[in-house]
């Protein structure tokens, strides 16, 4: 859906973005990951023409964005700013309704849509008439997200959408975010410098350094097949945590199946349906999430923390020996 080919941007002599190429498929969630100053924001801003590239071409659905009217283009792309950037003189309602107003929507259309998003993003209705300064940081980020989503754009650009949050709020918003039906069909390019967040949310990760792409691929590929020293070093230190995130129940199921069901390992592969029934979770749930759930609801859960850990350890052993 989106295609960047050999895109560069210089600020004076500094190469903020240096020959970047990648493409993002429809409905895919690509995360731009890298240390501060590596050019993530600049890359993102070139996609909605907040910054014009010095070199290279960007196309959306096959159309060169340089040929389009920048305002029309931006109205059709959701953008969540690194610094939220709510309008301080607009109420929350007016903030969320910014793009509909520019698109000259009827109030009869705008109002229900705003209300719908407020509900989906767990924003209490009484905030509608408040001003941004009267909101908490987490609320402001949700409003920023609502503002980007309101016109239901097929493409969403998000620059560290959870950047300014404490860890607790952050993981709860991330969890909500993942479950948000609004986002399921969308093509999303998201920027973060938080490796855990990238692994949590990405279909593919684009790892950048000094304006260049170091590696682009699935989280598992980044973790298990680093393309270079930079990729390896970047993930070092968090490897274990990341293994938990990239491994799914499906991966470890064969190693815990016997204990959970009494069926032996050498018997034919069990269908996913069996896993789901036994563990009460879909097969693509990450081990990390399953562990968290097990720990949180030790009583009601169908599988214990220890059983999961056990399965994971055996799986790791097996993988390493392959």
């Amino acid at each position: 859906m989106i295609e960047l080919s050999n895109v560069s941007k210089y600020f004076g002599s500094a190469k903020a973005v240096d020959g970047v190429s990648f493409s993002v498929n429809e409905g895919e969630n690509l995360v731009l990951l890298g240390t501060s100053g590596c050019g993530k924001t600049t890359t993102l801003k070139m996609i909605n023409r907040l910054i014009n590239p010095d070199n290279g071409a960007i196309s959306i659905k096959g159309k060169d964005i340089q040929q389009e009217n920048p305002e029309t283009l931006r109205r059709s792309i959701g953008y969540v700013m690194q610094n939220i950037g709510l309008f301080p003189h607009y109420t929350i309602y007016e903030n969320i309704a910014t793009v509909p107003k520019l698109l000259k929507w009827d109030t009869n259309k705008t109002r229900p849509r705003v209300m719908e998003l407020m509900k989906k993003l767990h924003l209490p209705e009484e905030l509608l008439d408040r001003f941004p300064a009267e909101l908490s940081g987490g609320q402001m980020q949700r409003v920023g997200l609502a503002r980007a989503l309101v016109a239901d754009p097929p493409l969403l650009l998000m620059d560290e959408p959870f950047g300014a949050l404490d860890n607790v709020t952050r993981s709860s918003i991330q969890a909500e975010f993942k479950q948000l039906d609004e986002l399921l069909r969308k093509t999303i390019i998201m920027v973060t410098h938080d490796v855990q967040e990238a692994f949590e949310l990405a279909d593919r990760i684009c790892l950048m350094d000094k304006g260049k792409i170091m590696q682009i691929g699935t989280p598992s590929a980044l973790l298990h097949q680093p393309a270079n020293d930079f990729s390896r070093k970047f993930l070092d230190g968090q490897r274990l945590a990341l293994e938990f995130r990239v491994s799914t129940l499906k991966d470890i199921w064969p190693y815990m199946r016997a204990k959970q069901t009494g069926i032996q390992r050498d018997q034919p592969d069990a269908p996913e349906e069996e896993l789901h029934r036994t563990l009460g979770l879909p097969g693509n749930t990450s081990v990390w999430t399953a562990l968290e759930l097990a720990k949180a609801n030790a009583q009601t859960n169908k599988v214990s923390f220890t059983a999961l850990m056990d399965g994971f350890t055996q799986y790791q052993k097996a993988v390493r020996h392959e």
Binding site: L50, E71, T72, R74, R75, N83, F87, T98, L102, R147
Partner: peptide, 18 residues
């Protein structure tokens, strides 16, 4: 004015006049 606010206005698709 906070430059981020101005940038947000651009990002939402406002023209210079707007």
């Amino acid at each position: 004015i906070d430059p981020h606010v101005r940038e947000a206005a651009r990002a939402m698709g406002m023209s210079r006049q707007q």
